[in-house]
Design a protein around this nucleic acid. Structure first.
Lengths: 193, 193, 193, 193
DNA sequence: TATGAATGAGGGTTCATTCAT
DNA sequence: CATGAATGAACCCTCATTCAT
């Protein structure tokens, strides 16, 4: 079981850790299990990560980076703000469903702040993306003159809630289409339509 | 420090436990601290609760019951579905902000199912309330003919996301008004308005 | 094995720890063994001491305090400086032999400073005692006009070396009498005697 | 970084190990650090030394050998026993100060006996040297008729204590001159001096 | 010779839970 | 009802040592 490339081992650990953290959460996940799942020794874990927290944070950072890149990419060439928003929402929900693991949950370990800084940065960035879309929508006259920040927060909150639902009520999810439809058009019936 | 009514002691423990769980989360909260905060002995804790999990679950159940009762009550006499929905959202967000503690987070301890059954029941009930409102709105012609279940889930997701935000990004919350406005009217500008 | 007085337990731990530290040294001594020797559980250890270091330091402090008190006491009423010095030396060597355990060894754990502050205080105090004796000896004309500090350091060094010898070469110790004789009278033969 | 003569590598390791052991002590020193300080791989260490203990013992042996040789050499041609003793003391203290590292401390690892045999041999040899000087001093009438062994032990103890002081109280050392003066002439004032 | 990734026993510490008082 | 000393399993992490390359 010796002599594996360091990079491969690191990746194997991260993948395994993802599964374990996803199943048990940070506090209940333990290094022994992660080691076993990684098919590496406990000591081996510490060859690649300073400690449990480092492992977790590295994991988070990488997954969030992936996610941020993808959403950013998928939206940047869309001109229609309604479409862009729809795509952003769909991207987010689908990605979350696919990687139910962790992602945004687990904000409470270690007396609140724990990788929170990193998460906040990520959120801010993502929210910035939504804000831009909304701003463009308002400028182009497609969207109403809403409070951009507040609205972005609300949209973000739907996504965040969705992610939490994946964990808590995986059978009570909703479709991205229905979601963007509601956000774009609202619940109230328009006159004569 | 002895001879206290059992009921009072139990209440004192629950109140203290709420604060402690809220600050540390389930896994990191420990019985000694809860005991101290309750001004009771460690052994005393086990007089009223079978174990830590029982304490936590009892706590959850009671708070959720409180919450469910309140929302139920506040909405039942409102006839206008738009207003009812607005009130429900406002109630939920404000209650969540006031009792940031726990509530919905912490769905992941103990390998997934952990008081989840109880939580799901609560969610279902709450969602049922929203569904009713929506159904009435559709029937009365105020709301569009949306998919009731899906829409209720989405609305619920906003609230759930808001609650998570309280923990993760307490400075990025949004106002209930803005929220119900978005949900009711949507983002897209109506013709000639 | 339950319900023992806290004070008794603490004392039992300290006594056991003394033996264990004495046999293995700080680094090699482990809490499991100390627990067993104390006839207490591992967790019990941490009821009385914050951690291994705390246990060790508490131990040191108490033993040094004992020792300092005794030497101080035994010397304070002696007027003849030569006799006082002899008694101090005898006291020190005998005490050390009786409590071979630890005492002065182990100055190197944790990258040097480790309870060093405490030890230094103790040494200073002890050396101060010797300095006083020497000073009085000089004043009364019994001793030569030596450098008080330096001489005290040398005398102290003999004692310290003796203690180390207990550990390293327990069969190569010397008698207190011979020692004070050498220090008082020196090696060189006096004229016409 | 390869193809180095074995002898050179071994020496490099020993030099590095000396520094590391000196800084951390035996127990806290670890092979990785020694490897790094030696600019050799961990595996490389085990090419030259069976294990950590072997490395340490080899180190000790070589340094003690050095020291023994030097003192032996410096004293052998001196005829005046007082001068010889002074030189021996000065040599010892100065050498100790210069190579504060290890030397005599750390007699306690591994449950007492740990390189102790070797150390004892060294001590015996050194003490033999002192005994010879004293014996010659007595024979030539310069020294009193003291117990040779005891006196040698006492003198050795001063040196040993000095070494320990280097570690514990490096700012409380004394000068070799003062030391040999005290040992040679004693503290008590001679008649009509 | 030389490397360094990998191993795993073992150490310090925490904490839910029990039970004699 | 109430106490809190005591328990011990289980956690995170270290490090001497091995071995495929």
């Amino acid at each position: 079981m010796n002599k594996r490339s360091g990079i491969k081992s690191k990746k194997r650990i991260l993948d395994a850790a993802m599964k374990v953290f996803a199943e048990y959460g940070y506090a209940k996940a333990n290094m022994r299990v992660i080691a076993k799942a990684s098919d590496i020794s406990i000591g081996g874990l510490y060859l690649y990560f300073k400690n449990k927290e480092d492992l977790y944070l590295t994991l988070m950072k990488s997954r969030m980076g992936d996610f941020a890149d993808k959403t950013m990419e998928s939206v940047k060439d869309i001109n229609d703000p309604a479409e862009a928003l729809g795509i952003f929402i769909a991207m987010s929900l689908n990605y979350a469903k696919k990687h139910k693991e962790i992602i945004l949950v687990q904000g409470r370990e270690h007396g609140f702040a724990f990788g929170l800084e990193m998460k906040r940065k990520f959120f801010k960035k993502q929210r910035g993306l939504v804000e831009n879309i909304i701003r463009q929508g308002i400028q182009s006259g497609v969207f109403k003159k809403v409070n951009v920040q507040e609205t972005a927060r609300i949209i973000f909150s739907v996504i965040r809630g969705f992610i939490l639902s994946i964990v808590v009520e995986p059978d009570s999810l909703f479709s991205p289409e229905e979601c963007s439809n509601l956000i774009l058009n609202g619940l109230i019936r328009r006159n004569k339509q």
